[in-house]
Design a protein around this nucleic acid. Structure first.
Lengths: 240, 240
DNA sequence: GCAGTTGTCAAGAAATCAATTGAATACATG
DNA sequence: CATGTATTCAATTGATTTCTTGACAACTGC
């Protein structure tokens, strides 16, 4: 019923209406799998090849590819062939907005989400999230702050906060010496439902650092219109 | 995997993350059926009992009830027992926003939607949609305008534009005399994907009226913060 | 209490979807 | 043009969805 894009005038009104609403449903359908939501979440942090994505979301390449087909057919992601690989990306800023709407609706209405977030992000003790505005204000005031991007390096390369250094969470423990012991550290990651930054803060605090994490992640920062930098180029302001 | 809301600290991180994203997916899942999207669309125009809804979306009562259970469990709708009936309503304004995000994403990214809309809304000839601002400006200027709500009466009773008269599309042909022949008529319905108002305009034009339709429907009007009236009470401004 | 209305639940058939596997296709390099 | 790598397609299995039917539960009004 949702397949043939009938231009047919003979189709009874009711059938056209049903098909139209089935089209709307198809977009929701695309995010009706937790794995696909994860994929979209990763993609909002930067383009990826199928293999990179598969590694991130811990699925087989074939399975990931199929999920990507579903997302592509629903118009949520787009693909570009790049030599032997295919890079996938979010198809439009509207997709990010939709994903934000989805998760805030879930957080508002599903009681289970709140408790899961607490479990996932871990103990909140000693974790005072910092807003983007506060960070900007502190930087402007000239406070000695190191901003650390704890996401995988690929995502740092795709885009990061101006002046941030990249120390993926995996490597944090081995690279602590890169952080001056006397300055405060602000870590950020993929967003409010990403555990990387809170985890990093716990690690840093365990080693005596004054550390806090940003309440939002890079996608939110960029969507808010703040400036971001990418590895192979200077800063660029993201469109809303 | 998406069932047990485990508070268990022993659960490996990966499992918690998967469950969290499954929760997000559950909300999308709820709108992954065209019938449920239709139900939500109708509900954004006013509360309904199960039976009324079933009639509107042309499903059996049992089936409608089951769809409503799905929506309720995803936190999108809420129910109140009212004597022998149960009234369902949109659970929060965030649901309306989510639905708007869904449909505009679909309209932007799925080429099939545009053609279906054209088929469904019918020929665009002679149909110049009017914006809410334009309507307000014309009313303010004192132009002789009749605003007609062509949705089912229940929806008019729930909320309508200030000063609008209710003539459901079904009855329009028989109640033309209620409209002064010399004044312009502006019809509106449930929103940009509702065929009622365009259809009404065609009917009116066929009978010699100068008629136009509002580009948006009542939910958009209310969400924009404009004043609405309801049958059993004066005007009230809707919260965003 | 009992009849009638309204809504929900349970079970089953048909259709659809998710994940896995193995084969097939596109491409860069030599 | 052959080769190896990255990605997609195709086929399978098991799980979910959708809708129907019929039984049951909640409530009103007599």
């Amino acid at each position: 019923m949702s397949q043939s894009l009938a231009y047919c005038r003979l189709m009874p009104d009711r059938a056209v209406k049903m098909e139209l609403f089935d089209q709307f449903a198809r977009v929701a359908q695309a995010l009706a799998s937790g794995r696909r939501v994860e994929i979209v979440d990763v993609l909002t942090n930067g383009d990826r090849t199928v293999e990179e994505l598969a590694r991130q979301v811990r699925l087989s390449t074939a399975n990931t590819s199929q999920h990507l087909q579903v997302l592509k057919e629903a118009g949520l992601v787009a693909a570009t062939r790049d030599g032997t690989r295919v890079r996938y990306r979010i198809a439009s800023p509207a997709v990010y907005k939709f994903w934000v709407g989805l998760r805030s609706l879930a957080a508002e209405r599903l009681p289970g989400v709140k408790s899961l977030v607490e479990t996932y992000l871990g103990s909140r003790e000693g974790l005072e999230p910092m807003s983007g505005e506060e960070l900007l204000a502190r930087l402007k005031a000239g406070e000695p702050l190191v901003v650390v991007d704890v996401r995988p390096v690929e995502e740092y390369r795709a885009a990061h906060l101006p002046g941030a250094v990249s120390i993926p969470l995996d490597e944090l423990e081995y690279r602590l010496r890169e952080l001056p012991a006397d300055s405060q550290v602000v870590a950020y990651c993929r967003g409010p439902y990403c555990a990387f930054a809170p985890e990093a803060v716990r690690t840093l605090q365990a080693h005596g650092y004054a550390a806090r994490h940003l309440s939002d992640g890079l996608p939110e920062w960029a969507a808010a219109g703040y400036r971001v930098e990418s590895a192979n180029g200077g800063g660029a302001s993201a469109e809303t």
